[in-house]
Write a protein that binds this DNA or RNA. Structure first.
Ligand SMILES: Nc1nc2c(ncn2[C@H]2C[C@H](O)[C@@H](COP(=O)(O)OP(=O)(O)OP(=O)(O)O)O2)c(=O)[nH]1
Ligand SMILES: [Mg+2]
Ligand SMILES: [Mg+2]
Ligand SMILES: [Zn+2]
Length: 572
DNA sequence: GCCGTTTTCGGCCCGACTGTTTTCAGTCG
């Protein structure tokens, strides 16, 4: 998918134009285009091939940017970008990315002192030469040094699971104070983005809350602090933003702080057209506040129904909410989930035995659980060979006679070998209730090879689900190169489902892919890939992610009752 | 550079904190 690269080019054009002091609204246009393209569900190359005119129908892409997209698709880059990159030293972009240093200061340092790298900046700051510049002083010079220090220590984007626990801790810490009437986490965390840049927390009550917040034991230092907001960095290097507003503004502030920024701007524009103004304190008609206590009120004031946080990305959700389609649209809920179709036991690299696994599923109110241990070629995972898998099948049959209220499905997570064949003979696969096929090796194939390999695997008549379809590990390993759209069409044609792997280290399938799947009627299976006790809980991450991809009950395989599920698994 | 049931020109979300400043620019959420 080249969308990411195109988005990066537009983002960099925006950054350089900003450095040069170009028209701020042009810069906004480039930034907006980058945001839209990076969240766009479809491969722009495919869209362009289908009909070049479709590209400029994407909101935020006009004539000029459509031409540049065409150029990038054809040549790998565009002249405007190449020219701008030549005009600046690359080090100045690094300077601009330092916290508290933006385009204006970066330009000042370069124009007046020829500073074109973080290294040089540090040396000038140490020698006290920055404070001489107009608009600079001792404090801002020190801030530059601190920003350079912080650059290495500050945590980059992290998987959502790394932030969730600490966010909940901070929220309960705040709630202990009598000053705090309400506290919630917001931002990308509340939208359940798979990675988050920081933790955003909203509290309602008096300005004293800010002090209390800064006294949280894990706070390493305070970046900024006022009556209504503060930014701190924890010992772990995680940044936490607090926002404090009066209780009557709770809904407006939660709405503002949940974002996304693009969604906020979009609905603020709608309000503007209606003669209203939305900010974090409420919706205003002149001086009069017409909404603010709840998020529902805010939506109502601009004639929109409530949109769930997971969808607020300004990627069409506002248009959907305003359309007739909305009545029929019901995002999937956790209670829709009937079972789990990918789990491991101590027969391979899991820790529970079959019965314990079954009981955990039953405890969740599930009616089925598929046991899908690894196949033999995965030695590190103690994969099952044909003999042991058949032995396990017998055990499961026996156990199912005994179990009440839960059915174990006999399955395997069969390894996809390098050539796309499967690590288990068809004669065994055909006896199973369910087959998950996944890639665990040879991540470095070319996109063409990997695509052909996976398609061959899912063309096996016994495969039901393609496991962790991109192989990415959040913050650890990139997705392998693969033409996912082609894989998805092949899967759709053969009634194979794609897995949304709910393990928080993976969250493999993002919102964009899920939306594409939804549009083509491709089934998605929300699988926890549980390897031990309590890991069926990962389904929560998956349901949130599914909602980000606009999935409804009907798009998700494991919302089916056992009977219809079995029918689907038999391919009709 | 994008966009349009008021507009094809003239707007483009709105506010808090910091530091340097005699009234605000820069940066960030
Ligand atoms: N109206 C408006 N709201 C903003 C703006 N910037 C940020 N916000 C709101 C929406 C964001 O979701 C929220 C938190 O800001 P963050 O910078 O932490 O972004 P967010 O949490 O969405 O993503 P992140 O994972 O932290 O990068 O504040 C802005 O320029 N305008
Ligand atoms: Mg955030
Ligand atoms: Mg933030
Ligand atoms: Zn697995």
């Amino acid at each position: 998918m080249e969308n990411k690269k195109i988005a990066q080019i537009f983002q960099e054009i925006g950054d350089i134009l900003e450095l040069k002091g170009d028209n701020p609204f042009k810069i906004i246009a480039y930034n907006k285009a980058a945001q839209v393209i990076s969240n766009y569900p479809y491969d722009l190359r495919e869209i362009y091939k289908k009909d070049p005119d479709l590209v400029k129908q994407i909101p935020g892409i006009g004539e000029s940017l459509a031409v540049k997209i065409e150029e990038i698709l054809a040549t790998g880059d565009c002249q405007k970008h190449l020219k701008l990159v030549k005009e600046i030293k690359h080090g100045v972009l690094d300077i601009m990315r330092l916290r508290g240093i933006g385009p204006k200061k970066t330009k000042l340092f370069y124009d007046k002192l020829g500073i074109d790298s973080v290294q040089k900046l540090k040396s000038y700051a140490r020698r006290g030469l920055l404070r001489e510049l107009t608009g600079m002083g001792e404090k801002s010079e020190l801030a530059v040094l601190e920003a350079i220090e912080a650059y290495g220590r500050l945590k980059a984007r992290m998987p959502i699971s790394d932030a969730l626990n600490i966010a909940e801790e901070i929220v309960s810490f705040l709630r202990k104070s009598p000053e705090v009437k309400k506290a919630e986490y917001a931002g990308s965390l509340r939208r359940r983005l798979e990675t988050v840049g920081d933790i955003d927390i909203l509290a309602c009550g008096s300005p004293k809350i800010v002090e209390h917040f800064c006294s949280f034991p894990e706070v390493e230092h305070i970046e900024s602090k006022g009556d209504t907001k503060a930014t701190v960095v924890l010992n772990s290097g995680i940044q936490v933003d607090l926002r404090v507003v009066p209780i009557d503004s709770f809904g407006a502030a939660l709405y503002y702080f949940t974002g996304s920024k693009a969604h906020n701007i979009a609905t603020r524009k709608i309000a503007q057209k209606m003669g209203l103004k939305i900010n974090e304190y409420g919706v205003f008609n002149g001086k009069k506040c017409v909404a603010g206590k709840t998020e529902e009120e805010i939506f109502k004031s601009i004639h929109l129904p409530y949109i769930i946080p997971e969808m607020r990305e300004d990627m069409g959700e506002i248009e959907l909410a305003a359309s007739r389609e909305w009545k029929k649209f019901k995002p999937i809920e956790i209670s829709d989930i009937q079972g789990d179709l990918h789990s491991h036991t101590n027969w391979s690299d899991g820790s529970l035995d079959l019965e314990q696994a079954a009981l955990e599923a039953k405890k969740r109110g599930y009616t089925y659980l598929a046991i899908t241990d690894h196949s033999g070629s995965l030695k590190i995972a103690h994969g099952l060979d044909k003999i042991r898998l058949e032995a396990q099948m017998k055990e499961i049959d026996k156990l199912n006679k005994k179990l009440r209220g839960i059915v174990l499905l006999k399955g395997v997570e069969v390894d996809i070998l390098k050539d796309g064949s499967l690590d288990m003979p068809d004669s065994v696969l055909k006896k199973l209730d369910i087959v998950v096929a996944s890639v665990h090796t040879y991540f470095k194939l070319t996109a063409e090879e990997q695509t052909a390999r996976i398609i061959r695997a899912i063309q096996n008549p016994f495969v039901n689900i393609l496991g962790h379809p991109t192989g990415k590990l959040l913050g650890m390993r990139e997705a392998y190169e693969v033409d996912l759209m082609t894989v998805m069409r092949a899967a759709r044609a053969r009634d194979v489902a794609l897995e949304l792997n709910c393990n928080p280290k993976r969250l493999d399938l993002n919102a964009q892919v899920l939306r594409a799947a939804r549009d083509m009627g491709l089934m998605i299976s929300l699988d926890t890939d549980a390897h031990g006790s309590s890991q069926l809980e990962y389904i929560e991450y998956g349901v949130h992610m599914a909602r980000r991809g606009w999935l409804e009950k009907k798009n998700v395989l494991n919302t089916m009752e056992l009977q219809s599920l079995k029918k689907f698994l038999r391919h009709g």
